[in-house]
Structures are given as structure tokens and as C-alpha cells.
Computed example of a mutant assay.
Amino acid sequence: MNRKLFKTFSRPAPRPRNPYYQGPVSDHFDGVRFFSPNQPPDKSLKDLLRWQMQRDRKAWPQSHPSPFVDKPPASVPGLRSVLIGHASFLIQAAGLNILTDPVFSERASPVSFSGPKRVNPPGIAFEDLPPVHAVLITHNHYDHLDLETLGRLWQRHRPRFIAPLGNDAIIRAEHPEIPVEARDWGQSLDLGHGITAHLTPACHWSARGLRDRRMALWCAYVLTTPSGTIYHVGDTGYGDGRIFQDVRERFGPPRLAHLPIGAYEPRWFMQPQHMNPEEAVRAFRALEAGQALGHHWGTFRLTDEGIEEPPQALAAALEKAGFPAERFRALRPGETWTPSA
């Protein structure tokens, strides 16, 4: 073989470049991509095509309005949590107002004319939000990182934006004026008012396009507050359950846990990244949480289960596990929770 041609064929493929984050190798970053410990292999294009060709997709209504609408107070001295929709919460604690994964756009999509469309309006109108002090982003999927909404929040409220490593670059590419505080798993930020945000692991992944899979980190949050510990999970698989046990061991049993209960069918495809209601109850047990609120269902159609299947499956899983139904509520947009006296 021609020596020049041999060198061309034998040369190793160029190492991909991470456009969002450059940092040292760690136990969950290989220098290019992030990963969860014991993470199963990524699903392939063949797996995706198999799912799309064999889908048993339950019907969803075009509109599924919530019976609840919330107009929150400007501040709360104790603790109050309300689901805006999907994984978007307003947490009010000790006078601080915190949003998680705020999505007020009509679609969870890179384009405005296609992609998952919300079937109910936000449970709090954007104009009815109280002064927002902090925004917590768990990861960069379009149903959690909505750049249009982040821009609106910056213009109106000037909050602090907190996100896992790499997501700051994604936000700044669209909104260079927004300062984003990016942190790694195990790191913490003081939000004021006696509240600290701690970034903890989740069993998930990230991508905004076809070539950036796992190039930005994902996380869950623990909020230690004067009114108790709050654990917020945007997306996660159950894995071996260690992430929930670690939260309980490090911070004690949370007073409140936001746990996803939707977007889980088919299991062969979704299990590594999304808990089903039975697994969410197992996580609730591992956390020993005082109260859980179920989210990530009933707003955007992402997977194959019917719109009402998550709360129905949650009720069955709670009964089987011997928990009272009120200990783990599947919230609708605009529905609030406050602790009992």
C-alpha cells in the first residue's frame, strides 16, 4: 500500500471537542463528555428508530387544562411550593423566591413551529410571578432549559442563574448579558436568607443537538433552608438507588422532595434516564422524605404513556408500598403545597 495512503487510513480519528466546557478529568468527566457512575451505554440511532417504528403511543388530548391557577404572594416567611408545569416549580422559602427549570414557552423544542407542545398553560402566569431571586437549571434538554424564558426572566427580575458545568456557555451563547454561576456535583452556593443550593448527581444525560451528547453536566439540587431541606430532581433514572441514599446520608431526610413520575414508556428505552412511578416511590422510601410532590407529567407529550397514567400508577405504587396517598401527591399546574402546622 502507498505509504501516504497507509498513514491516512491508520491515523486515529480526531478527538471530539467539547464546545461548552474544558476542565480536568474527574470521576464523572473524561475530558470531553460527562457520565454518571455505572452509566449504561447510550442508546443508539438503531434503538431510537426501533422505538419510533414500534411505538405503542397512547392518545393525548390537545388540551388538558388544570383546575388550579396560582397567584403567589410576594414572599413567604416559611415554605411554599407550586408547580408551574412539567418540571418548573416556584419554591418560596425564608423570603426567597426560586424557580426550577422555568419553561413558559409554548413548545419544548429548538423551533417554535414543531416539537412537544404544552397542553395546559403555566400554573402561574409569567406576569404574576413574584420577584424572582434565583433560577436553578438542572440540565440542557429543551423541556428544562428554555432560553426564551431565561431571557424574559433576566429582563424582568435580574435573578441569579445557577446551572451545572457547561450550561453557562449554552445560556451565554444566546444571552451574553446573563451571568451564570456554573458548578460541579458536590459544590454549593449561598443564595442568602440562610439558604444554600447544593448540586448533587442524577442518572441522566444532556444534549441540545446531534453532536453534543453529555458535553454539559446535569444535576439535582438540595436546598438547605431555615424551613427544612428541599430536594429537587428534574430528570433521573433510579439506577441502583445510591444517589437517593447519599442525599439522605449527607443532608438528612428531606422535608420536601420534588420527584419526576412521567415520561417513562417504553421501559426498555427510558429506564436509564426516567423513573416510572414505582421507582419514584422507591426513591421516596430511600430518601425517607416527609413529603413528595410528583412532576414531569401531563404538560408535554414526550413518551408513550397516556396523560393520566402517571398519577394512576403512582396511586397504585403508594398503596402497594403502604404509604398514604397524601404523602406523595402528583401535582397539576398551579397546585400548591405548604407544610401542615
Rank of each mutant, 00 (worst) to 15 (best):
M1H: 13
M1T: 13
N2F: 13
N2S: 15
L5S: 14
K7P: 02
F9R: 08
R11K: 15
P16W: 09
P24C: 03
V32H: 08
F34G: 00
Q39P: 02
Q39I: 00
P41Q: 08
K46H: 13
R50G: 11
Q52N: 13
D56A: 13
K58Q: 15
P61A: 10
F68Q: 04
D70M: 14
D70K: 11
D70A: 15
P72F: 08
S75T: 14
V76F: 10
P77V: 08
G78E: 11
R80T: 14
L83Q: 04
H86N: 14
A87E: 10
F89W: 14
R107T: 11
R107V: 12
P116Y: 11
R118K: 09
P122G: 09
G123Q: 02
A125G: 09
F126H: 06
A134W: 05
D146L: 04
T149M: 05
R152M: 12
W154K: 03
Q155T: 15
R160P: 07
F161S: 08
L165K: 06
G166E: 00
R172A: 13
E174F: 09
P176G: 07
E177Q: 11
I178C: 05
I178F: 03
R183L: 15
R183K: 13
H193C: 13
H193T: 07
I195A: 07
T200F: 12
P201D: 05
A202E: 04
C203P: 04
H204M: 03
S206F: 00
L210F: 15
R213H: 11
A220C: 10
Y221R: 03
L223F: 15
T225E: 05
G228P: 01
I230G: 06
Y231H: 11
Y231P: 02
V233N: 05
T236E: 00
G239Q: 00
G241I: 01
R242W: 10
F244M: 00
F244W: 11
F244E: 00
Q245E: 15
R248Y: 12
E249H: 14
R250Q: 13
H258P: 04
P260E: 00
G262W: 05
Y264E: 03
E265P: 02
R267F: 04
W268S: 06
Q273I: 05
H274V: 00
N276H: 06
P277R: 02
P277C: 07
E279N: 11
V281K: 01
Q291F: 12
W297C: 03
F300K: 01
G306Q: 08
Q312L: 13
L314W: 10
L314I: 04
K320Q: 14
G322D: 02
E326P: 02
R327I: 03
F328V: 03
R329E: 07
A330W: 02
A330E: 04
L331F: 06
R332N: 09
T336M: 08
S340D: 15
